[in-house]
Amino acid sequence: MKHFLLATTLIFSAPAAMACETVTIGDLTVEHAWSKATIGAGRPGVFYVEIKNSGTTDDALVGITTPAAGMPMLHETVVQDGIASMPHAMSVPVPAGQSVQLAPGGYHGMLMELTTALKEGDSFPVTLSFEKSGEVTVNVDVLSLRAEGPDCADAGQ
């Protein structure tokens, strides 16, 4: 019986996919972390994630690090007068009581100098540094280049 219970617990606690993993630090919840497969290691990879701040203090994502890339940076896609550019973002505000998404067409992590090509089905860790809450590491699922987001049961996007 004990073994049966243990097995059941394992089944129900195993996430459907890494991207559906949720990690918390202080008042912040970090979830739905995903990336896209790359063709070779020469092109930059991308990193998307959702951050909820359930506290009463504003915070900000100020940097990301990962063993998957030599130079990971925060960027923002900006479309002005029809022209898309991708300036470096010094930080991504995570205001109190709000949710922020790094998502296609907006803020995103740009993973330059990939150590190896990102392949669909792989996962890699990314450590997020917050101005006030400190650091937290989340596992990032590599989806296809065509993917528009992770398929999580609770993904309210």
Binding site: R43, V46, T77, A84, M86, H108, M110, L145, E148
Partner: peptide, 17 residues
Amino acid sequence: FTWCPDVCPTTLSDISL
């Protein structure tokens, strides 16, 4: 361009849909 990590694959995914 193919080195473009965000806008281009997003647009091509949309077009594919």
